[in-house]
């Protein structure tokens, strides 16, 4: 039942929003993973980010796609928790590790099952359209599973369409630039520098520096 609801939601709500209401300018789509286990790492500006990223994949991969999200935010009340877990299909993780619990355990287990994780290494949506610093969790995860490709995706415009502090969706064409996958490295600093470097190069592909004040 939940699986069917999720299919309906992504086919009839998320995809029309991503492709018709917004409209996506996707570059290098062929670089997206076609099978799991894999990690997709994107910058985060809007709740639309997850819907857009999942709409890039064919529907048959939907059961494999798991957006990783903060448990404290998305399960803060029962209705939101039900919707997040069953319809959006999030993989909840605990941002603040308490009592030595490993917050990345659920991610590792999902990769073990062959899932494609959708991750936002900035941690939260932050300032609209500003590329924040990446948190290191992704480096730890990638180092534990060096066989899993990590594909960087740069999103632009979604923070204009639905920013953090405003519930009204205003349509804009949005850019989605897919980078080349990289692999985990035991030196986390090297991995993070490489990931952020690829992200910055994708951001440079924007046609011109637009002033979005």
């Amino acid at each position: 039942m939940a699986r069917f609801l999720r299919l309906l939601f992504y086919a009839l709500v998320a995809r029309p929003i991503a492709w018709v209401v917004l409209g996506l300018n996707v570059r290098h789509r062929q670089r997206l993973p076609t099978t799991g286990p894999a990690i997709v790492a994107a910058n985060h500006n809007s709740h639309l980010d997850t819907l857009v990223l999942i709409s890039l994949f064919p529907l048959r991969l939907l059961p494999r796609l798991r957006p990783v999200a903060a448990a404290d935010y998305f399960t803060r009340n029962p209705v939101l928790a039900w919707f997040s877990l069953n319809v959006i299909g999030i993989l909840p993780i605990r941002r603040e590790a308490r009592g030595g619990a490993d917050p990345l355990k659920p991610c590792e287990a999902a990769l073990e099952r062959g899932d494609i994780l959708v991750l936002f290494p900035e941690g939260s949506r932050g300032e609209p359209e500003v590329l924040g610093r990446f948190k290191r969790g992704i480096a730890v995860l990638a180092a534990r599973r060096p066989d899993v490709p990590v594909t960087p995706v740069f999103l632009h415009g979604l923070g204009k369409a639905l920013p953090k502090d405003d519930p009204i969706l205003v349509p804009f064409f949005c850019d989605v630039f897919v980078g080349e996958a990289l692999r985990g490295n035991n030196d986390q600093a090297v991995f993070m520098a490489e990931l952020e470097g690829r992200m910055a190069r994708l951001a440079d592909e924007l046609p011109s520096p637009r002033e979005d004040s």
């Binding site: 609209p128 415009g157 204009k160 405003d166 009204i168 349509p171 804009f172 002033e211 979005d212 004040s213």
Partner: peptide
């Protein structure tokens, strides 16, 4: 939509 995506817009004008 294309026009609004091209031109600089103010965040205050979303509505």
């Amino acid at each position: 939509k294309e026009y609004f995506s091209l031109i600089p817009t103010r965040r205050a004008d979303r509505r």
